[in-house]
Design a protein around this nucleic acid. Structure first.
Length: 97
DNA sequence: CCCCTGACTGTCG
DNA sequence: CCGACAGCCAGGG
């Protein structure tokens, strides 16, 4: 059977499939890529990859990308994503709160 | 193949 | 809320 494509390849495709207002976590991406627990690897890939909607990716705690929080908050707000406290996105996996 | 690094995650205090 | 610990995985040298 065909071995699964590289994580970076899958992650890139998943992000490209997302739209405005979509927010997911690294763990969520890793899980969708079929590599649960590879959230850390996903983050590394995100840092190296380019041309991807990185601003739609946050940590499991709604934390924004360190070093680009302000930047990300801007982009998310532009897509209609409500932030909490200013530098925090709603839990993608636990909405309705 | 071994070792190190990292945009992570969950639990505990 | 924040910090410390441990577990996990992929990429690059």
């Amino acid at each position: 059977m065909p071995r699964q494509p590289s994580l970076s390849q899958t992650v890139a495709r998943l992000l490209q499939g997302t739209g405005p207002g979509d927010v997911l976590t690294y763990g969520q991406l890793a899980r969708m890529a079929g590599r649960p627990g590879a959230a850390r690897a996903v983050g590394r890939i995100m840092a190296e990859s380019h041309g991807l909607p990185w601003w739609r990716v946050v940590t499991a705690r709604g934390r924004l990308v360190p070093g680009a929080e302000e930047r990300q908050a801007e982009l998310l707000a532009a897509e209609g994503v409500a932030l909490e406290g200013g530098l925090r996105a709603a839990r993608p996996g636990r909405p309705g709160e």
